[in-house]
Each structure stands twice: as structure tokens, then as C-alpha cells.
Amino acid sequence: MERLPLLLTPADHATARAIRRRVQDGERVKVGHGVTTSAEAFAAASEATRHRARIDAVVARQRPGLIVSHESAVVMHGLPWFGPLPERVLLTDPTRDRAQRLRFSDKVPARGRSVGTAVVDGVLTTDLVETAVDVALRCDRGHAVVVLDAVLRRGVAREALVAELDRRPVRRGKVRAHRLVDVADARIESPGESLTNLVVHDLGLPTPVLQHEFRVGAQLVARVDFWFPQQGVVVEFDGLAKYRDRRLRGGRSAEEVVVEEKLREDAVRALPGVDGVARLVWRDVLPGGAAPLMLARAGLPVPSATERTPPW
């Protein structure tokens, strides 16, 4: 992960005043107590890189024993996320029995509880199981299922997630988290697919075949995200990144990628047994989106009263 260079304000008063002036002038941005980075670099960085700068700043000033956790651990492990990350760094504190909110960090109490940890890039962090369960209990269902799918894909056993949930001394959110662990699937390959799968589950649709390969003889025609064989419907999530990101286009222009995707979809539609195709984008699978209408038009048995993507 890209790291932003940080400057720890020294004890020298003259230098400290000069740095404060640069912050006031907009040249630098404060990411922790007495820690700044270039405002230009910070603005140009990704959401994850900005949050990593906050983590580095907080860790540099905190006492030993605190554990980077929750959404901050998601960043440390390089797990997928969408949308903004918290302004404060999330820390689990094994010595506290009450939460504490500070300017640059939120401390989550964990006194008397064994916390699974890993050292990631030199930083004490909750391990993958702990992180996924923390997010499942704390965050909305959309973000939680994205993280759960990702840790399963990395090899974490579903049973390990269930066991960690069962031993947590909390009641709030536990039933919901257990249901999300049941929905999560290691075959999901992107956050958009995770949210699409959650929509399918929330609508009570038949269980799809994930990452299904269509072949004609020995030739692979297409590998699709979701295949509903009984209804003859293919559903794909299109994150649009392959059109916008040069690195993902493999030297092709955006127009060439669009044409290739159109030809691929035409080939899928022409396959025997395929009666409908739904291509969803971010706005469709987010709460209030048009995913139910699009899935119904493709031929899936969506409840007639549901026209918008359910809330998380």
C-alpha cells in the first residue's frame, strides 16, 4: 500500500510554530497529535492511503498494547471496502471496559477478552477472523458482507467466524452477524458482487451458481458472476472500473472495452438456455437502487411489491 510521508512535530518551539503555520496556510494537514503530512499528497491519495496515514500517526503517539481494529484493520489487511472510511482510527484496548472517543481515535473496550492479533507491516492489528467479526457486529450489512466474503476468499474457515461470534460477550447485532456469515461466500470476487449477492438473498431469490463458466465444446464463451439455471438468467455486476482505469484496460481504449463487453454479452444471450441477462452497477445494488426491477425484467421471481434495493 502507498504510504504518505509523515512529519512528527519536534519539541523545538520555533519549528513547531512553523509547522502550525503551514497547516493554517493549507500546505500541510494534521493526521494525528503532532503529526502532519503534505496537504497536496493527502488530497490526491486514495481513501485507504489517507486512513493508513491516520493509523501511522496515531500508532506513533500511542502507548504500546493498543490494537488497530475494525475498519482500520480492514485497511491494514488490504481488505476490500467501498465508500468513505472513518475519520478516526479504530483501536481495541484490552485494558478498558468502556469506549473512549478522542480527536484522532476511537478506543473499543476489550478488558477480560482474548483478542486475536497479527503484526501487519509492523503494526499490531486484529487478525482476519477478529477483524471480520468486529466489522460484522459494528458496521451495516453491506460493508460487513464485503469483508466477510473477502476473508473467506483468503482462506478463513466459516466455522472460525461462527466460533468467534459465539464467544463474543455481546447480544446486539449477533443474530444479524450470524445470518451474514451464512450469506457470505468465498467465491465472491469483488465488493459489487458481494452487494449483488446480498440483494439476491434479501429478495428471497433462488440460490445462484457463482462464477459459472459457459462453454461450447472446449471453448470458453464466458464466465459470469451469477447464473440461475432454472430461470435461465445471467446476472453480472459491472463496476465500471475496467472502462475508466487504464491499468485494467490492458492497453485498450475505453471504447474498445465497451465493444468487447457488448460482444461478450451478445454471445452469452445467444447461448442455449439463457433467456435473460441483467447487468447491475453500483447505483442499482445500493439501498434504494433499481436492482429488483432489473432482476425482475430479466426473468427472476422478484416479489411484486419490491421495486427498490432493500436497506442494510
Results as ranks from 00 to 15, higher is better:
134 D>G: 03
160 A>K: 08
140 D>L: 10
145 V>E: 04
78 G>A: 08
139 C>Q: 13
165 L>N: 03
97 D>E: 13
161 L>T: 06
146 V>G: 03
132 A>T: 03
100 Q>M: 11
120 V>A: 05
141 R>K: 12
93 D>K: 14
120 V>I: 14
167 R>S: 14
78 G>E: 02
94 P>F: 11
153 R>D: 00
97 D>M: 11
173 G>E: 02
103 R>E: 13
161 L>V: 06
146 V>K: 07
107 K>Y: 12
107 K>V: 02
89 V>E: 02
91 L>Q: 02
170 V>L: 15
127 D>C: 06
98 R>T: 10
87 E>K: 14
132 A>G: 08
157 A>M: 10
119 V>P: 00
104 F>S: 01
107 K>H: 15
164 E>R: 15
162 V>L: 11
129 V>N: 03
154 R>I: 00
151 V>E: 02
159 E>C: 04
139 C>E: 12
133 V>W: 01
161 L>K: 10
104 F>A: 04
150 A>F: 04
86 P>A: 08
177 A>R: 05
78 G>T: 04
134 D>I: 03
136 A>Q: 04
174 K>S: 07
158 R>G: 04
130 E>H: 08
91 L>A: 05
92 T>K: 08
149 D>E: 12
161 L>D: 03
82 F>W: 15
145 V>M: 10
148 L>P: 08
177 A>Q: 02
129 V>E: 01
113 R>H: 14
119 V>I: 10
77 H>M: 09
158 R>W: 07
140 D>E: 14
92 T>P: 02
106 D>V: 08
112 G>D: 09
123 V>L: 05
107 K>M: 08
109 P>H: 01
172 R>S: 12
97 D>Y: 14
125 T>M: 06
98 R>P: 00
118 A>S: 13
155 G>P: 00
177 A>T: 01
168 R>M: 08
127 D>R: 05
77 H>D: 07
168 R>P: 00
170 V>N: 13
111 R>Y: 11
108 V>L: 14
83 G>P: 05
158 R>K: 14
107 K>R: 15
165 L>P: 00
91 L>P: 00
126 T>D: 05
85 L>N: 07
151 V>G: 05
